[in-house]
Amino acid sequence: MTASGSALQASVDGARGEDSLALPGSARPIEIESTLGGQVQDLIAAGNDHAARDLFAQIVTRQQRRASRIAWHYLRDAAEADEAVQDAFVKAYTHIASFQRHLSFEVWLTRILINGCLDRQKARTRRARWLLPVADAGRRDQDAIEHATRPADRSPEAQLLAREWRDQVVAAVQRLPDRQRLVFMLCHYSEHSTRDVAEMTGLNESTVRVHLFRAIRKLRKAMEGQHHAI
């Protein structure tokens, strides 16, 4: 955590639970993935591929949920997000020699993932320009979410409100400009600090903050008057 003020910290901590968001400006502690990544490098250099794969499997286990969330929020298509995550991990393994140990493995992996997602999004735009739209896979995913997140003890009215609220959040986030959306998702959905996001996106940290600020302002305006129905 960087020099965040105690007053603000006290205020913010009160509103946050155990599994809470990191402050946007806060730095991440040294992660175990970076150590594991370095060990994988050593094992591959020693020609012990089997052990390297076993160790890399640990990294996959630790990081895949977070990576899947990012890819899903970016692409809004489960199959494509799944493939993007796979590609990112495979690419990370095959290019592990270029990983710098003193940097964060998570940031490095996320950067690979985002680049992959961007490529997929461009390809999707090209496809949409030339081809007729196929069945709405995203809608099917949404139906699956609806089915899975429907609590039995909630009244139909509450369920409807929750659904509407979620739809509005998703729509509002989707309406954000690309960079603001990316920065917001990485900071808030993936819980990265602005410094990490700056490393991932190649933007200046102050630019990241400006994008984040503008994204929050737009979302706040879009969600004005809406109750938290979740």
Partner: peptide
């Protein structure tokens, strides 16, 4: 923002 984060995480975790 926390609610938005929770909703987003819940949504993605139900898919994955």
């Amino acid at each position: 923002l926390q609610h938005m984060h929770d909703a987003a995480a819940c949504e993605a975790d139900n898919i994955f």
